[in-house]
Write a protein that binds this DNA or RNA. Structure first.
Length: 570
RNA sequence: CGGGGUGUGGCGCAGUUUGGUAGCGCGCUGGGUUCGGGACUCAGAGGUCGAGAGUUCAAGUCUCUCCACCCCGACCA
């Protein structure tokens, strides 16, 4: 490819609204361009990267026996109505109608559609197990797209689906996908770690996210500093210190005029936050519940939602306070007429808690004595410094980008959709399934986020848009031009992917663009190098260059490329 | 959805406080000189100042409404 003819240009300055390094470099190098919030066009350079990422995914899916197919983007409402997701997904999906008024959704994902195909194609256990996958655009009307390609409203996802006879089969399929994901991310140069994650409100217990740890990530992950334990915040646990079982004198009222927050109490009573009980009155579905935590702990919304099996939790209103006998600002668990969930980190010792009476708190409140603490649950956030539940090490919180996830949902969809097969014993059984996703565009930008320097992108060889970047200096020198032309032609004949900077630009501009675009190998054909009857060869990631005799150059470069390809395929 | 911010040639920005008819750098076009790390020089092109309404002799600047984009949070198989 000749740069003088390439559609798409590099930018000296990044647009002001690009914030992360990867977002800026992606735009500056001409990988993709924004069309609207959360909608991006791949330019030719970026398109090649996308296709290489897809090819790696494809090879690893094929390796574990998954079969590629393709389902449409536009999906009829009827299938979504079978599982109830037509309504559930309403706020975050794009919808349309055809000229007869029939309703469609721009596919948010494809579980319903593949389950439908599964029930039509698979009649017998003899056809199982089977895995399929496709690369297809997903539409998600995200409330907040962000950071370029990291969170967008339309993106290509590789989604795979497994169908098994039973849970044991699902476990095997799941493990195969987990292995494929490890290889896939490794091959594209992403240091992804698999993290335990929550399965959401639809049952099943097995799910992992593949997270790339980077400060630009929007997810928070608890990571043990000494063992392999990693979990996202919805799932992260900790080992509690041995509970202090201290007795306490009878609870007594203390006056706390106008002191309504834990922070204010800390100052007013000069005690640490852990000396207080935090009581939250919440509305979950149709019910009101109280959650009691130590004053220095935050409630984890997702853990609580899962515990209560609801999709949304909001703070209770004034009427709710009145009904349960609580007073806003001075609420406490003592005497509260409502279901009380006590977090596992609340100890059996004296605390200061709200007295459910204006301007008053209670001292020496003992859980279990002064209020029932029979319903215990882990609903708190872990934090940096907590103790790892596996090896007792120290947990740290890190930021990550979720580049993929795998999810064993079992019979969730097949039961709702009546997707069954005839089992060996002659009975009808629902498929036992899992789904496995990778966001292609997100992976591309995450590679840039984690593989660049101050000058530009450093593409891993396996996903680089081209393998070799040939720079002619200067192009108006007839010898330079003809030599570079011939070298490029020879390399292309050998099947090497070459980006040829044949523009009549200064050396500074060309080298700066080469560093920015980040092709793994740069070959400079110049007046200076030709005096030595050589060309100059330099790796993007290395600082020094070497001279290669002109007559050996094509073979030498071809050889390097061949070896790099072999390494990238492993 | 809540909070905050920004909209001025392709990109980065100044000008808005105090209303007077739009400017700088880069990029772009043409000529000349250069040619190994974002060259120099001469001559050019390019803007309904996000949109609409209003105030005024006069609006990029003041008022109102709307829109778009970005950030933080919430949400997120």
């Amino acid at each position: 490819m000749r740069m003088s003819k390439m559609f798409g240009r590099t930018l000296r300055d990044a647009p002001a609204d690009a914030q992360t390094p990867g977002h800026q470099l992606m735009l500056r190098a001409g990988i993709a361009r924004p069309l609207a919030a959360g909608l991006y066009t791949w330019l030719p350079l970026g398109f090649r990267v996308q296709k290489k990422v897809e090819q790696i995914i494809r090879e690893e899916q094929d390796r574990i026996g998954a079969q590629e197919m393709e389902m449409p983007v536009l999906t009829p409402a009827e299938f979504w109505k079978e599982t109830g997701r037509w309504d559930a997904l309403e706020p975050i999906t794009f919808r349309t109608k055809d000229h007869n008024g029939r309703e469609y959704m721009v596919s948010y994902t494809h579980e319903e559609l593949i389950t439908h195909h599964g029930r039509e194609e698979i009649l017998s256990y003899r056809q199982l197990p089977v895995m399929v996958y496709h690369f297809q655009s997903k539409g998600r009307d995200e409330a907040r797209p962000r950071a370029g390609l990291l969170r967008v409203r339309e993106f290509v996802m590789k989604d795979a689906y497994s169908f098994d006879i039973d849970e044991a089969g699902l476990t095997t399929s799941y493990a195969a996908q987990h292995g494929a994901y490890v290889r896939t991310f490794q091959r594209m140069g992403l240091d992804a770690v698999s993290v335990e994650s929550d399965t959401g409100a639809m049952g099943g217990d097995l799910a992992h996210e593949f997270q790339v740890l980077t400060d630009v990530g929007e997810d928070t992950i608890a990571v043990c500093e000494t063992c392999d334990y990693k979990a996202n915040m919805e799932k992260a646990r900790r080992t509690m210190p041995a509970a202090a079982h201290a007795d306490a004198p009878a609870a007594t009222e203390i006056a706390t005029p106008g002191v309504t927050s834990i922070e204010a109490l800390e100052t007013f009573l000069t005690k640490p936050a852990s000396a207080f009980l935090k009581t939250l009155l919440l509305r979950a579905g149709g019910d009101v519940v109280a959650v009691v935590l130590p004053g220095d702990r935050a409630v984890n919304d997702a853990k609580l939602r899962k515990l209560l099996d609801v999709s949304q939790i909001v703070f209770a209103g004034d009427a709710d306070f009145g009904r349960v006998g609580g007073v806003a600002g001075f609420i406490g668990p003592v005497g509260l007429k409502v279901r009380v969930i006590v977090d596992t980190s609340v100890e059996r010792r004296g605390y200061v808690a709200g007295a459910n009476k204006k301007d008053t708190h209670l001292e020496n409140v003992l859980p279990g004595r002064d209020f029932p603490d029979t319903e215990r649950a882990d609903v708190h956030d872990v934090r940096t410094g907590d103790v790892c539940p596996i090896d007792g090490g120290t947990l740290a919180l890190k930021r990550g980008v979720e580049v993929g996830n795998i999810f064993a949902f079992s019979t969730y969809y097949s039961e709702k959709m009546g997707a069954t097969f005839l089992a060996e014993d002659g009975t009808r059984k629902p498929f036992v399934g899992g789904s496995y996703g990778i966001g292609v565009g997100r992976a591309v930008q995450t590679i840039i986020e984690t593989s660049h320097d101050e000058k530009g992108i450093i593409w891993p060889f396996s996903v680089a848009p081209y393998e070799v970047h040939v720079v002619g200096l200067p192009m108006n020198d007839e010898t330079v031009r003809s030599t570079a032309d011939a070298l490029v032609a020879t390399l292309e004949d050998k099947g090497v992917e070459v980006l040829f900077d044949d523009r009549d630009e200064s050396a500074g501009v060309k080298f700066a663009d080469a560093d920015l675009i980040g092709i793994p190998y740069r070959v400079t054909v110049s007046r200076r190098s030709l005096k030595e009857k050589s060309v100059e060869l330099k790796g993007r990631a290395s600082s020094e260059a070497e001279l290669v005799p002109l007559d050996l150059a094509a073979d030498r470069i071809h050889d390097i490329v061949r070896r790099a390809r072999e390494a990238a395929a492993r």
